[in-house]
Write a protein that binds this DNA or RNA. Structure first.
Length: 268
DNA sequence: ATGGTCGACCTTCGA
């Protein structure tokens, strides 16, 4: 099992869209699926309904109504209780696991970063402050992890850092997800120990999105997308990277999420 | 310039 494919998807309700996971598996053939916005408390996690998918190893952290993250895996894994309770909120926005691969353990982090509300102003909008505080905390925490290696960080990070990660850099400078403060915060976090595994394959001058708003009648025609979903790896894994895929067609799945799956293949 | 659409859940909130 030298090739490992890791997919990340904001599923926007696991119970509502559980049937779409078959399509994801068929299209991407992932070994590991990281989900965000599962919106299901742990005691209601649909383990039985997931069984036919044949991802026997699962870890999850959910709550009622909001947030929630899960990892479905064909590779044995165990929860890695290592990270703090970000911003002391008790939110279910992060789960870490250790994957047991034939060539040694891999550390995997699955994040759902706060969306941050509508107004990009700390005083006026506490959600925006929470988002900036969250990514500052995660940056400091990873920066303190000296010797971090063989690690993968994925998730809905709710920030599009590059000019071509949004449909119009100029028009989104004041829109939460692409403000200079968020971009600086996310970039500093990544540079605390990771490289962008998707942009490793796609030049920065090329438009690349993973999310299109529900509020566009014809999302494909208007194509006002943003790249909010990311896969980062520690630099030691850079030579291991083999390919990336963003499953744009998933945006047209029946009753689909507003996010599409992102996947990276690596030889680990 | 504005409003546009979802999901969860109890009527409005979060995205």
């Amino acid at each position: 099992m030298p090739l490992l494919r890791v997919a990340t998807w904001n599923i926007n309700s696991l119970r509502l869209r559980i049937g779409l996971l078959d399509r994801l598996v068929e299209a991407l053939r992932p070994d590991v699926i990281c989900l965000q916005e599962t919106k299901v408390p742990d005691e209601l996690f649909p383990a039985e309904a997931l069984r036919p998918l044949e991802f026997p190893h699962t870890v999850f952290r959910g709550m009622k109504g909001y947030n929630g993250v899960a990892i479905l895996s064909r590779v044995p894994l165990a929860v890695h209780e290592i990270a703090p309770d970000w911003c002391g909120k008790g939110d279910c926005r992060h789960i870490a696991a250790t994957l047991r691969t034939p060539r040694g353990p891999l550390e995997l982090h699955n994040f759902y970063v706060p969306a941050g509300g509508d107004v990009p102003d700390r005083a006026e909008n506490p959600k925006y402050g929470h988002k900036l505080d969250f990514i500052a905390e995660t940056r400091l925490w990873f920066a303190a992890r000296t010797g971090l290696a063989r690690s993968i960080l994925v998730g809905d990070l709710n920030i599009a850092p590059l000019e071509n990660d949004v449909w119009s850099h100029r028009q989104l400078l004041d829109v939460v997800s692409h403000t200079p403060a968020e971009v600086a915060g996310l970039t500093a976090w990544m540079q605390a120990g990771f490289i962008d595994a998707v942009r490793h394959f796609v030049p920065a001058d090329q438009k690349l999105y993973s999310w299109w708003s529900y509020r566009n009648r014809d999302w494909r025609q208007s194509d006002r997308g943003r790249r909010l979903d990311h896969i980062w790896v520690t630099p030691d894994l850079k030579p291991a990277l083999k390919s990336q895929a963003i499953l744009k067609d998933a945006r047209d799945w029946p009753q689909g999420s507003d996010h599409v799956p992102v996947c990276v293949e690596m030889r680990v």
